[in-house]
Computed example of a mutant assay.
Amino acid sequence: MSNDQLIGVGLYTPAEAGKLLRIAPAKISRWLRGHYIKGKYYPPLWTPEISLGDDRIFLGFRDLMEVRVADAFIQVGVSAIRVRAAIEVARDIIGRDRPLSTNRFRTDGREIFLHIVEEDDDGERRELLLNLFRKQFEFNTILDPILKTVDFGSDGNPLAWWPAGRRLNVVIDPARSFGQPIDASSSVPTAVLAAAAKHDGGIRNAALAYDVSETAIKNAIEFETMMEQRLAA
């Protein structure tokens, strides 16, 4: 993959992804590289967006969102085997290589559902959830709270992620700054703003230097401090 092809895709090592997602980098690598358990081989859950022509693992933005949802399912009690099965079934149903990161998934901690909107003969729309394991439609109002921090396009694919919620105005957008965390208003990476406040005379001087608000500098410092604490944990 050339540098031009990386534009709008995002680029993350497992360590960078792990810091953002609070997931062990080794787990991310296993999911995307495949691994053995007790002599049995488990293939990668999917092929990463990024390939630089060697054996290293890199994630694109869609991979980042896919890993985030897969881990969220496992955290609420869905087995990794069921997550793998859901990916395989959903690929066939909606025809996408990374179906978990679309806005059509829901979970109740035991089962995984695919969100379907259909229209009857009278033109009335209704929402259904297809249970991916029982292969039958069920009514449900479950919403996965992690989707609230993601902006989706009209096709249901993720466009941007607010990794600290929307309070700090920090966004990860693969179309801006190669998908690094940025101040949403100025597009300046949070790491740059936080470093400027530390080394260039404080918050006020950093805000003047980068033509951003002092609030943007404070938010960047808070976000980067949170990332450092995750590394230390």
Rank of each mutant, 00 (worst) to 15 (best):
D108P: 04
R126M: 11
M1R: 12
V171L: 13
P145D: 07
P181N: 08
H199T: 14
S2N: 15
E66K: 03
R82C: 03
G53L: 02
Y12M: 07
G8S: 11
R96H: 04
V170P: 08
I217H: 01
E88N: 09
L45V: 09
E66N: 14
A175H: 15
R82E: 14
G8Y: 11
R106P: 00
I146T: 07
Y36G: 00
L193G: 11
E124Q: 14
A197D: 10
Y210C: 04
A85Q: 13
F58R: 07
A209G: 03
D71V: 05
N169G: 10
D155K: 02
G156A: 10
Y41M: 01
Q229W: 02
N131H: 05
E118Y: 08
P174E: 10
D120W: 02
L130G: 01
F133N: 03
L59H: 06
G8A: 12
A17I: 11
E16D: 13
G8F: 13
P99V: 04
D71T: 05
W46M: 06
G156M: 09
F105Q: 01
N140T: 11
I172P: 03
D4N: 13
P158K: 09
L159M: 14
K198N: 04
N219I: 06
E222Y: 00
D71C: 08
T190C: 15
I23M: 09
A209S: 13
D183I: 08
L143F: 11
